[in-house]
């Protein structure tokens, strides 16, 4: 019997082998490159020949005004997204839950998921058009006699624009989990509330919301891990040099630093900072989610 198990296990190893090779080549090998963050990397010498300079890159990065601004922008955009991507889908799900015409409900649901599946490249091109100098927003403004504005070049509203369009693109998708949680609420609770004379608002306030609380807490906690992810794809496709002051985020900054200005060591150091902080935050959020919501990824 023991031999049989060993035989089956051999096949199990064969099965995981391609995945492990893939993981090794594209996830683990790049981790070796992290040493560049502690070197003055010279492409000609490679990571084994370049000079070691300790924490010099990190010290240099911390002195830059850019890096502070970029972190501030990242935190503002991502926390705005985390909060609103929780609240808006929740409110939307609650409103949709009040609709009694089932076909209408189904139609709304079918359509609001759509933007989530369209790439940011395409969505950004549309957003830039709509908010463009001659776009829909300025057309509507002109009906009220307002002067057209160059929205996409205005640093004072760029963050709001990023947060707003992200919430709009994904609220339908994010609402799915709430809608599922709503259907699993025990109908007896509503009947009891009706007998007690509760109106619709009171039922929402005292039955629905408490029942959704675990889901809200779970999503909020898991969102924490994303605090340094302000959304590269979106910002990269929406921004331009005129709004760098408020719109440049860690990921776009690292990209330009490394692949446009070819500052490999500095960009690696900045990336390592992001990876480490994110790793710690995600781990904390998973532990919290496990403790408070019994959530396990496996």
């Amino acid at each position: 019997m023991k031999g049989k198990r060993g035989n089956v296990e051999k096949h199990y190893y064969l099965m995981v082998l391609p995945g492990l090779v893939w993981l090794f080549l594209f996830s683990i090998v790049p981790m070796v490159g992290i040493v560049m963050a502690f070197q003055d990397y010279n492409p000609g010498l490679g990571i084994f020949g370049s000079e070691w300079i300790g924490l010099e890159n990190f010290r240099y990065l911390m002195q830059l005004d850019d890096s502070k601004q970029v972190i501030i922008n990242t935190l503002i955009i991502s926390s705005g997204k985390i909060v609103l991507n929780l609240l808006v889908p929740l409110i939307f799900a609650l409103l949709l839950n009040e609709v009694t015409q089932l076909q209408y409900k189904k139609l709304v649901q079918t359509i609001v998921y759509l933007p989530h599946f369209i790439s940011w490249v395409i969505m950004a091109s549309i957003v830039i058009n709509i908010f463009g100098y001659r776009g829909a927003i300025n057309t509507i403004r002109s009906w009220f006699g307002l002067e057209p504005r160059l929205f996409m070049a205005d640093p004072s509203i760029f963050r709001q624009l990023v947060i707003g369009t992200d919430v709009w693109k994904s609220f339908g998708f994010n609402a799915v989990i709430f809608l599922a949680a709503l259907t699993s609420i025990n109908p007896n609770l509503y009947e009891a509330a009706t007998i007690d004379g509760a109106n619709r608002w009171q039922k929402t306030r005292y039955v629905t919301l408490p029942e959704l609380r675990p889901t809200i807490v779970l999503l909020g906690v898991l969102g924490l891990g994303n605090i340094l992810n302000a959304g590269f794809d979106q910002v990269y496709n929406l921004y331009n040099p005129l709004v760098y002051s408020t719109g440049d985020i860690l990921d776009t900054w690292i990209y330009r630093l490394g692949l446009t200005n070819l500052q490999f060591s500095l960009a690696t150091a900045a990336g390592l900072f992001k990876s480490v902080v994110s790793f710690v935050l995600i781990t904390i959020s998973y532990v919290l989610a496990y403790k408070f919501a019994d959530y396990k990824i496996f």
Binding site: P30, G33, L259, A267, T268
Partner: peptide, 19 residues
Amino acid sequence: LLIFCMLFNGGLIPWYITV
């Protein structure tokens, strides 16, 4: 190992140089 690689990565530049 999978969980670790899901939560942590070498960052853009080391990944690019590897590829």
